[in-house]
Computed example of a mutant assay.
Amino acid sequence: MLDALTLDQMRTFVAIAETGSFRAGAAKLLRVQSAVSHSIANLEGQLGVLLFDRSGHRPVLTAEGQTLLTNVRDILLRVDAMRARARGMGEGVELELPLVVDTLFPTTILGKALSEMRSQYPSVAIRVAAQPLGEPINALLEKRCKISITVGEHFRDPRITLEALSSIAMVAVVSAQHPLGKREKTLDVADLADHLQIVQSDPSPLTEGRDFGVISPQTCRVSNQDMKHALILAGLGWGRLPLWQVERDLREKRLVRLATRSLGRDSQVMSEAYLAHRVDEPLGPAGRALAQALLHLCSELPS
């Protein structure tokens, strides 16, 4: 008899459980109450258990009903996911959307954009890598991702199309306990060169033999932005970090801006973030939805 169970019966069961009554469940499903009652009676007969205690004013889930409700919700979730994936295949929706995002790009904006995309295409799997410098472009060139976000003007290739998203403020900072953080006079390049600079390494071959913004002969090279942030906070050295990452540290005076005019006004420079993809591989529906979400969210940021 279990083979005779229908998805309609399961959806009816969930509707009554969630609304608390046969009448409200029927209204939610746009059906007459007698049809809903008949559907649940058939379901109980096929399962061989009572799902609802009808002795009171309102139906109450039995212990068996509570247990089976979890199973039914799981089944419906899987069926809906399968339908969404099948619908996506018919529409040419990507099965997976791999993307590489510059470590300087705000993670909150990325998270919101991905959530918006997923609301439209829930069947699409997401694979995100946060990589610095040339790697977002390199990943596109090597076809390891479909879309990327890159920051700065150093990485251009005619095979890659770029669309500006927003400006990223980069701030030269140091721990408030570091000797440079305690200096009251304006610092010059020689002062900075006397201390260790924390520098982001590039995992791609695009910057081989080149350095960007390296002033000090004393460097500590790190593989990710969080490590750079942690080492600067610990007082090991100084370096540039995105303002969104250090705003709280600056506000609570764990970090201070370097008192120098050599690294931009108020030790701050602006870098442009770009949405990037290959010219010969146009974005699919999910990729376009993500791009639109990013553009919309970035347009609302203060300029």
Rank of each mutant, 00 (worst) to 15 (best):
L2V: 02
L5T: 03
R11P: 10
I16K: 01
G20W: 01
F22K: 05
A24Q: 01
A26Q: 00
V32L: 10
A35D: 10
S37N: 14
S37P: 11
S39R: 12
A41R: 12
E44D: 03
L47Q: 02
L51M: 08
G56Y: 04
G56V: 01
H57S: 15
P59V: 03
V60F: 13
E64A: 13
Q66T: 10
L68E: 03
T70P: 06
T70L: 14
N71H: 12
N71D: 15
R73M: 07
D74T: 07
I75E: 04
L76C: 05
D80Q: 09
R83N: 11
R83F: 06
R83K: 12
R85C: 11
G90T: 07
G92L: 09
L104T: 10
P106R: 08
G111C: 09
G111N: 14
M117Q: 05
S119H: 15
Y121K: 04
V124P: 01
V128Y: 06
V128I: 01
E142S: 14
E142F: 11
R144N: 11
C145A: 13
S148T: 07
S148Q: 04
I149A: 02
V151N: 03
S166M: 13
V173K: 03
V174L: 06
A176S: 14
Q177L: 12
D188P: 12
A190H: 11
L192M: 05
Q197C: 05
Q200F: 11
S201M: 15
S204R: 02
S204G: 06
R210M: 13
R210H: 12
P217A: 02
Q218H: 12
R221A: 05
Q225M: 15
Q225E: 14
M227C: 14
H229N: 11
L231Y: 06
L233D: 01
G239S: 03
R240L: 15
P242A: 02
W244I: 01
V246A: 06
L255D: 07
A259W: 15
P285V: 00
A286F: 02
G287H: 01
R288Q: 14
A289C: 02
Q292Y: 09
A293H: 07
L294T: 03
L301A: 03
S303P: 02
